[in-house]
Design a protein around this nucleic acid. Sequence first.
DNA 1: CATGAATGAGCTTTCATTCAT
DNA 2: CATGAATGAAAGCTCATTCAT
Lengths: 197, 197, 197, 197
Amino acid sequence: MRTIDPVKHEEKRAEILEAAERCFARDGFHGATIAQICAEAKISAGHLYHYFASKEAIVSAIVDAGVEGAASRFAELTESSNAITALVSELARLRALHRKSGAGVHLDVLAEAGRSPAIGAVIQESSKGVRRLLADLLRKGQSRGQIDPDLDADMAAAVLISVNDGSKSLLIRDPKLDAKRSAKAFEAMITRFLSPR
Amino acid sequence: MRTIDPVKHEEKRAEILEAAERCFARDGFHGATIAQICAEAKISAGHLYHYFASKEAIVSAIVDAGVEGAASRFAELTESSNAITALVSELARLRALHRKSGAGVHLDVLAEAGRSPAIGAVIQESSKGVRRLLADLLRKGQSRGQIDPDLDADMAAAVLISVNDGSKSLLIRDPKLDAKRSAKAFEAMITRFLSPR
Amino acid sequence: MRTIDPVKHEEKRAEILEAAERCFARDGFHGATIAQICAEAKISAGHLYHYFASKEAIVSAIVDAGVEGAASRFAELTESSNAITALVSELARLRALHRKSGAGVHLDVLAEAGRSPAIGAVIQESSKGVRRLLADLLRKGQSRGQIDPDLDADMAAAVLISVNDGSKSLLIRDPKLDAKRSAKAFEAMITRFLSPR
Amino acid sequence: MRTIDPVKHEEKRAEILEAAERCFARDGFHGATIAQICAEAKISAGHLYHYFASKEAIVSAIVDAGVEGAASRFAELTESSNAITALVSELARLRALHRKSGAGVHLDVLAEAGRSPAIGAVIQESSKGVRRLLADLLRKGQSRGQIDPDLDADMAAAVLISVNDGSKSLLIRDPKLDAKRSAKAFEAMITRFLSPR
DNA sequence: CATGAATGAGCTTTCATTCAT
DNA sequence: CATGAATGAAAGCTCATTCAT
């Protein structure tokens, strides 16, 4: 009975996930092929299916991992003294992140979620989680008097998430866009949106 | 003895474009097939290539057509007495439009533009045009005292376009989202962003 | 508007069907591959799908063609003066046929029909037709006093079809089986089964 | 220090065989996978290969086991006072058996035997054994005056086996076939075939 | 202008089998 | 004895594009 380490299994899974992430970032959900992902992860084509049931399942896993990341970051944000500046810089951080790794996947996955019920469900579940966390954050800001108490926290959270989604298009529409000036404009919008009047 | 009627040619082109738009909206850029588009346009597969050199060329043409539409709408907006409410309602109109026809293509095309240089170039050209029009609109609002004169009009235009892009994700992330409440949140954000202080 | 001959289309379809039949006979339903069939029919892999929607659809078409053949042969049998000898020799003819072309497909398709609803439906429909034809034949024999009037014509037809199915196993179970002696045994069984007492 | 217990080994082999039989009955020879069989037998994929050299070897073993079963049943039949009714009810028993467990495998294996030399050899060997047993039974009936002495016992045995094979197709061709009426038709055919004139 | 037959590379996925542990 | 990770060939099928008619 030599049942082998489930830890190793998880590690391999994570390796494949990282490989897939790189491929999706480079070529998009449809552009990236299983063969590429396997090559990147240095496993055989067939073996990938010991870890993931389908290409879609890989995307699901990536998205799921994203929620957990968001949760931990939001937990930190709650600690910060100024809710708005914290949020503004978090959004800036996300923009910078995608400036490096390519925003394609993010939009690709969203578009795919609009069509594939499987991925759609994953995205909706994930969004619900993130939105709740973000709304809590906003409400905390409201109770501290840092954020306009008249705002509908839940909807403001949804809008902020969509603003983040939209920011993925900035560099696609203008790759030479001045980072500082655009950051300033975003900051202005968010700050004015959330500040008490 | 067969003279080419350039008018008829353009009409056919437009018909195909509309058919393609319906297909892309339904199934996305990758999901829609040439065969589907041909069926929808009621022409043969081979014949489509008399009008468009490739699938990408169809997308390019659709995007190009989008700029012209935006131009004429913005021209109308310039006439309106209140620049901000006009803008807010235009953005609301676009959201409503996509609520019906599916936002998938919009995001799909953006994602594709991030990868394919061909489509990327088209999107960038188109974005430049729309952004200039929008920035002009904003500057006009500033000169009339309706919009905060301290705003960087050019960047604000870029941000507003990206806000519009992001709004495509709203219903994907939560298909049951309350339309009125979310519209109100958007309105608040745009209004506060642009209003003189 | 050069709509091309639907006749040519049918001819090509028939060619592919014949090629497929050869492949199925050689390697069975699962053993034969689309690639083999295409090679045998001298067309490309993709082109086959202009004529048949799937591998299963090819089997369906083959089975359907079989019913038509059976119908025309049964029509001839009705003319013959002695119903029983006619039937006996028809069954012998079918055994001889499969002695040449391999009985594998026949059993393969039946087995597949027991599992795949798609093929099952085709086989059931086809069987219904053949059985009705055969039962009519038997009833005609009964009215002429050549066949035992006490027999349940419909069930006898079903049993005879199953006897034919079973005869496909004869050579598989013993490739060296003496053809004449086994034919005689079959003849005895059928004759005694159907003859008036 | 680890001595192999040949009894345990045989028990495990039998367990796997039963599991495989269930899988083959459900999904056919090609449809059933090694993974399924292993799951059903609650062993690992690799371990199965300690007991059977290949998927074909499993089929061989199942077929072999079938002969032994037939031998013991035929031994009982020899005891019965009326050879024909005993045979008729044995065939009915086999039909009823397959009505429950699915006849697919039987036909599947026969079809496979027509192609694979390995399985073909096993089936031929097994058939030879069963046929000899059955022929002996018939000859015993002849010597007792219960069966037509003019019949070629050996060929009659072959034909009866093929009738049994063919009966597997009855329900596939018509799943709603009336069991009693069809049983009666079979009974009539067998009885008239074998009875002295 | 217009058709649709034809291509062929490429896709995701499956699965019997092997082997290090 | 026993596991399950790993392989890799091959399967069915799709689709943008070309071309003879």
